[in-house]
Design a protein around this nucleic acid. Sequence first.
DNA 1: CTGGTGACCGAAAACGATTTCGACAATGCG
DNA 2: CGCATTGTCGAAATCGTTTTCGGTCACCAG
Lengths: 336, 336
Amino acid sequence: MGRRRSEAVTLGDVAKRAGVSIATASKAINDRGEVAAATRARVLRAAAELSFQPNVLAQGLVAGRTRAIGLLTDEFDGRFAIPILLGAEKALSDQEMSVLLCDTRGDAIRRNHYIRTLLARQVDGFIVVGDSNDVRTSLTADLPVPAVYVYCRSTNPADLCLVSDDEGGARLAIEHLIALRRKHIAHITGPQHYRAARDRVAAVHAVLAEHDLPLAGGQPLHGEWSQRWGRHAARLLVATAPEVDAIFCGNDQIASGVVQALTGLGRRVPDDVAIVGYDNWEIFAADCTPPLTTIDLNLQQLGTTAVAHLAAALSGSRAAGVVRQPCRLVVRESTA
Amino acid sequence: MGRRRSEAVTLGDVAKRAGVSIATASKAINDRGEVAAATRARVLRAAAELSFQPNVLAQGLVAGRTRAIGLLTDEFDGRFAIPILLGAEKALSDQEMSVLLCDTRGDAIRRNHYIRTLLARQVDGFIVVGDSNDVRTSLTADLPVPAVYVYCRSTNPADLCLVSDDEGGARLAIEHLIALRRKHIAHITGPQHYRAARDRVAAVHAVLAEHDLPLAGGQPLHGEWSQRWGRHAARLLVATAPEVDAIFCGNDQIASGVVQALTGLGRRVPDDVAIVGYDNWEIFAADCTPPLTTIDLNLQQLGTTAVAHLAAALSGSRAAGVVRQPCRLVVRESTA
DNA sequence: CTGGTGACCGAAAACGATTTCGACAATGCG
DNA sequence: CGCATTGTCGAAATCGTTTTCGGTCACCAG
C-alpha cells in the first residue's frame, strides 16, 4: 500500500541528473521555449535513464486535453459493437489517444453513472455505440464535449449518427443476383421489428421492381436470426415456390442454415440456388459449404470514421445528421 | 478549440459560493476530516449547482490512485477476450474503476507503445489477456504496478496467471457421458498444437482409463475448429467406429457440424449418439438442433476473478502462480 | 573596446487540488 | 465560574508541473 510507485521519479530528479533547472527540463521534454539542442538531448537522456513518466495528469490540468475518449456501448456482447470498437481503437491509437470502455448493459442508471465518471476523467469526447434497431435518446445536451453516435440514431437531429447503409447493402445483394441472371429471388430474414430488416426488405422490393422481377415466395420470410430459422424457412420456401433460384438472407447464420437445408433437399448451391448472406461473419460465412457470398458492413471502418468525425469535432468543425456507411459485396462460392 | 469546458469550475468557486474556505470544501466533498453536517450539505449543494467536477487528475497526483486499469489484449477479435473483458469491466465498474482498452494485434511494438501510454496515464494496474495457447513474455519487470495475466501463461512463475481449467472441463464432459452409460466415447477436437486441445485430450484419456473404457476410434481426431471439420470427422468416425454412442467435441462449432453430419447419416442425437461441445458459445450451442450440452468456460467469471486479484494486489497482497478457473457443465438436449 | 542582440537558462509564480495544524467557539465537568 | 475537551473551520504548506520573466553570456558590428 502506501506509495504506489517505488520511487516516483519527478521532473526535479530528471533536472538534477541533467544538471539543469526544473523549468529547463520541462521545456526540453515538452519541446517548448528555447532550449539548446545539447541541453535538450541531455535532459532527454536523463529522463530516459530514470524512465521518467511525465505526469500527464497534472499537465492535463493546464493543457486541457486528456487525449482520452469514452466509448459507451449498450450491448457489448452483441456481435456488432466489437468490430466497431476495434476500428475506433485502432484509429484512436494512431492519434495517441486512449479508449475508456464502458458497457451500460442497456441500463440507464449505469449509463448516467458512466457518463459522470467519464466526465470526471475529463474525456475529450464520446463515442456512443448503440443497437442499430432503436433510437438513442441524445446525450449531447448533457455533455460539455462532442459525441458521435455509431450504429444507432439519436433523437436529436443535430447529432452526428453513423449507421450502416442497409438499403445499399440489400441493393448490392439483389443486383448481384440479378447480374447472375437469377429470375426467382427470395428473401429470408429476421424479425420485422428490426429496422435493419425492414430497410433491407424495402430495398429488395425496390430493386426487384426496377428490373420487373417478382419476389419469389411472394413476400419476405421473417423469423429469427438463426441457423434453425434458415433451415426451416428454406424448406418452407422450396415447398411453396419450387422455382426459386436465388435467396438473399438477412444474415449469415440464416444463410448457413438455408444452405444446409437446400443441400439436404438435394438442391445444389450455387448451381440450382444462389445464396447471399449478410454481415460477413467469417465464422459462418467462410465455414459454410460452399462459402457464402455476403455483404460486409465495414464495421471497423465505421469505428474509424467515427473517430475521424470526433477528431474533426474536437478541432471545432462538427457535422450533423445521419451518415450512411456503404457496405461491400464479398463474393464467395455460394454465388460463384 | 480554446478552452474545452466553458468555464472550468474550480473548488474555489464552490467554496466561495458555499461561503467556506477551499480547505473545508475539499473536506466536505471528499468526506474527510471534521465538517459539520450542515456545512457539508451547503458545500455539496453549491458543488451540485455549479456542476463541479472534482479534478480527478490533480487529485490523483497526490492521492496516488487514478482508479483506472489498462487492459492489454493480443487478439481482441478472438472470441475469448470479449467475455473476459466484459466480466472485468463489470467488476471494475463496481469498484468505480475504469478500463483503458488496448489491442496490440500481436505486435510487440504496439504493445510497448501501449504500455508506455498506459503508464503515462498512471494506470493502477494491468490485466493482460492472452491467447491461451502461447506463453506471454512477462511484462511485470517493466511495470511499476501490478499485473494479472488472464487466459495465458507468463514466462515468469512469480506472475499470477488465470487460465481456464481444460483438464477439469474435459473431465466434466467425459464423466457426464459415462454417467449416461455411454460405452463408446469418441473425441473430435482442434489442432494438436493448441495447448487447450492437448490438455483436454490428456484428461479424456485419464478419465476413460479410470473407468476402463476405450476411446472410440482409437485416438482423438484432430482438425480445425470448424463446423466443416466437425461434419467431416463425424462421417469418418461413423465409418471407422460405427459403435460410437457419444462424442465429446473440442468446441461447439465442431459439435454443431458433428450433429449435422450424424443427422444426415440417420443417427439420432442424443438417442443413438450423445454429443458434448465445448465453450458454450450460445450462437452455436443453443441454435443447434438439438441444442448442445457443452462446457462453459466461465470466461466472464475469469475477468471478474482477475479484477479481484488485481484489487488484492493493489492493497498489497499479491498472489502468484497459475490459477485454474473451473468450468461448468451445461446440459441441453444433445445428451438429455 | 563598447554596446547591442539573441540565445539560453533558472527563479519564482501559478495551477487546482489535499493535508496539516493551529485558532476558535461551544460544550461538559467539577 | 474556571478549565479541559471536543467539534469546526481556515491559513498555509505541499504536490509536480508549466509558464512568465528577468538575468547571463557569447558573439558581432562599429
